[in-house]
Design a protein around this nucleic acid. Structure first.
Length: 115
DNA sequence: TTCCTGACGCTTG
DNA sequence: CCAAGCGCCAGGA
């Protein structure tokens, strides 16, 4: 596949995403877009979601700490059971209401700050 | 090949 | 953070 102007294996792309996910501090969250931006901002946030899809098998990634730009648990349906995502986040000290993280901006972690 | 579908996000109104 | 529209890019039918 092509990424940022050059051809790479898609597994390499996945690994870049997973690498960032594993850096998310416990109790913090980030967004698909923020990760995409950290990867060079040339790729759309959809690709990050795509990578998360593949992460649920054979990869240890805290996917529950990745939400959309509004702090909504847009990917909860892909957990088993679906309520699992919310439970994991609440266990890390976050508050969720209507599939949305309360005080999202205050718990947001930007991957770019770690570069 | 074309058309549709997303764990998305920015800009406008 | 109301909603419609557009851009994004890989996969599947």
């Amino acid at each position: 596949m092509k990424f940022y102007g050059q051809t790479i294996e898609k597994e390499d792309f996945f690994n870049l995403v997973y690498q960032i996910c594993r850096r998310i501090p416990k109790g913090s969250v980030t967004s698909y877009g923020a990760i995409a931006k950290a990867l060079g901002s040339k790729t759309s946030a959809r690709m990050v979601g795509w990578a998360m899809n593949a992460s649920h098998n054979s990869h240890e990634v805290p996917a529950h700490r990745v939400v959309n730009r509004l702090g909504q648990l847009s990917g909860k349906a892909h957990f088993f059971p679906p309520c699992r995502m919310q439970e994991l986040l609440e266990k890390e000290g976050l508050s969720i209401k209507n599939d949305k993280i309360l005080d999202f901006k205050n718990h947001f972690w930007d991957p770019l700050l770690e570069l």
